[in-house]
Each structure stands twice: as structure tokens, then as C-alpha cells.
Amino acid sequence: MIHLLNIRKSYENVAESAPVLGFRELHIGAGERVALTGESGSGKTTLLNMLSGLLVPDVGEVRIDGTNIAALSEAQRDRFRAANIGYVFQTFHLLQGYTVQENVELGALFARGHQEAGRAAFLLESVGLEHRRRHLPNQLSVGQQARVALARALMNKPRVLLADEPTGALDPETGRQVLALLLDSAQQYGITMVCATHDPGVAAAFDKIVRVEDLQ
């Protein structure tokens, strides 16, 4: 499903040109739920961004379902991301000024083909927020915002769900609930999930743990 090969990535603005990320291979099977762990600056988020196509490695292949997205043009990667990738950010990044339902609908705005009528409402119901669909993000608790972010990430029926420290901004109890929801959703819809976390407790809930430092 996901196959990264001979990856090397460095940033131009880093004073020393030592690579941020460099490893030979990483394989994640279809439907697998993988936690990426490692110290801050180890390259977890860089790896997620490469999987989403927002970044490309300097060298190497990023194959998702056989497509080497590192070889695609930026516009092609955008299209690929819109159709195949769901992303839950650490601070959720819900757009202020848009209602909860509109935020969820944004998840499929850039995907080709017709938006499925009622999908946003269905997803909101599945995360227990159907009664809050007309509310604005700043009227929600942080936990509720996390659930909206998950619904938005599932809106385009992604094959890969990426999550960057999804529980980092939550209290332990809410974090556990959101994590359970993420894992259940990935399992329920058969989505391959990659989650960056520095929390061993969170990582332990996943099918597989990959320590980024060990990849180097």
C-alpha cells in the first residue's frame, strides 16, 4: 500500500546541510494503522508531509497504491491528495467563519467528481456532532474540534489517513476518546492510517510502531 524507498530530504534553510530525513525503506500494508514516533525534530511531520504530497523527497520514491507521488507534478500531487488523503492536524486547523458542516464539506471540495449529498451530515452523526453542525468552530470544545477535523479528513473517502499529534492539544481523557475514534474510523472504513506521536501511550494503541530514528 505505502512504500517509501531510498528517501533523503533536507531543507535549504537549515544552516548545516545535514538531511532531516534519510532512510532506505518503509513499508506499510493496506489497512494498517501505524504510529510514527521519535524525538522532536526527528522528521515525523516531514514524513507525513511527504506521504501527503505536500513535500517531496530530494531523492527516493513515495509509492501509494503503486503511484510514485514523488515523481508527480505539484498539481498532480494536489489532485492525488484531494482524492486519496485525509489529514488531521495537531491543532485541527478548522477554518474560522465556516460552520462545522461547511468545515467538513471542505474536505471534499477539491476532489474530482460529485460530492456525495448528505455525507457531511452522516460523518458528523458518526462523530456525535450532528447537533452542532451549524455552530462555528470557536463555539466548540477542543475535543469536539478534533472530531470535526476527523470528519473533514474522512469526507473524501480517503485511502490514507494521516494524523499529526492528534491528541497533543487534548487532555488525557479527551485524547483517549479522540484516539479511539480515529482508530475505529480507520478500521471501520478500511483506511491505512499513519499517525505521528511522541506519546508512547498513544503509539501503543496502533497496530505497528515505527521509530523514525530507527529508519535512518
Binding site: L54, E74, D78, R81, A82, Y87, F89, F110, R152
Partner: peptide, 8 residues
């Protein structure tokens, strides 16, 4: 965010 959601 819009770029991450697939906006060109």
C-alpha cells in the same frame, strides 16, 4: 489547510 485538503 486548503492546500492540504487538495487545493492547487
Amino acid at each position: 489547510v486548503l492546500r492540504a485538503l487538495g487545493a492547487k
